[in-house]
């Protein structure tokens, strides 16, 4: 077990979609310095749980979250928590790349603009360059920042979305199967990128790819039918799972 301090703590979280009990009593700590992977068969509630960490579930009619989720000790579902700021602090990258139909520059500059993070155009330019560099995209797009973000390839679009999330200086980045729509080369780039970003941000990544989870993460959580079956260091989970169901899943006998 790593002994970094927890960035986010979730305890006894339940999520319901109307009558559908999608997440059952999940407790988990996300550490500052780590990449945490969520694995499990489709429909087991990984995305649902991930979305409850930045309250994106609020936008789904009928979705209800109970339990306690804290960011740096503050209850994110508390009345005085501002959702808008929370989502800036806990960024998200989606399964399908979803750049705005605006220029590459505008895509990255949008977040800093609405949060007033830059005092001048020069500062905004710097934020855009830094974010695109961290996302490993700067060299590819620096000459065509005014082109539409939707004109990039799938892998570039996904890195643009990561740059967009980084631009508002989040503390946590949630990634929901960020490589599932990408080819192996683009996937490798994203994995490298996650590696580079590690430590700067707490990263949570949902993935269907066992090798990917093993490669990029330090901690792994295995979900099954809405329950957290096992959570621990990635090396332990993959070499020495304590639960039979975890073992079945990672060896491919299951799911």
């Amino acid at each position: 077990m790593s002994n970094n301090p927890p960035k986010m703590t979730a305890s006894h979280v339940d999520v319901y979609y109307g009558a559908n009990h999608a997440i059952r009593d999940v407790s988990i700590d996300v550490c500052q310095e780590d990449v945490t992977a969520f694995i499990g068969p489709s429909g087991c509630g990984k995305s649902t749980f991930l979305r409850s960490l930045n309250r994106m579930n609020d936008t789904i009619p009928g979705a209800r979250v109970s339990g306690d989720i804290r960011l740096d000790g503050d209850d994110i579902y508390a009345r005085e928590m501002d959702v808008v700021q929370l989502r800036a602090r806990v960024g998200m990258v989606f399964q399908k790349p979803n750049p705005f139909p605006k220029s590459i520059y505008e895509n990255v500059a949008y977040g800093p603009k609405i949060h007033g993070l830059a005092q001048s155009k020069a500062e905004l330019d710097r934020i855009v360059e830094r974010s695109l560099s961290r996302a490993g995209l700067w060299n590819e797009v620096k000459d065509r920042l005014s082109d539409s973000g939707t004109a990039l390839s799938g892998g570039q679009q996904q890195r643009l979305c990561i740059a967009r999330a980084i631009a508002v200086d989040p503390e946590v980045i949630l990634m929901d199967e960020p490589c599932s729509a990408l080819d192996p080369v683009a996937t490798a780039r994203i994995e490298e990128l996650i590696h580079d970003l590690r430590g700067r941000y707490a990263i949570v990544i949902v993935t269907h790819n066992m090798q990917q989870a093993a490669r990029v993460s330090q901690r792994t959580a295995f979900f099954h039918l809405g329950q957290l079956i096992e959570y621990g260091d990635t090396s332990d989970i993959f070499t020495n799972p304590r639960q039979e169901r975890t073992k079945d899943y990672i060896t491919g006998r299951y799911g």
Partner: peptide, 23 residues
């Protein structure tokens, strides 16, 4: 308007009014 655009804006911390007026 694709819901993914709304999600994208919300996820960088756009308020509901900003999502509507900007996107």
């Amino acid at each position: 308007v694709p819901p993914s655009i709304r999600d994208a804006a919300l996820a960088v911390g756009a308020s509901p009014i900003q999502v509507v007026s900007h996107h």
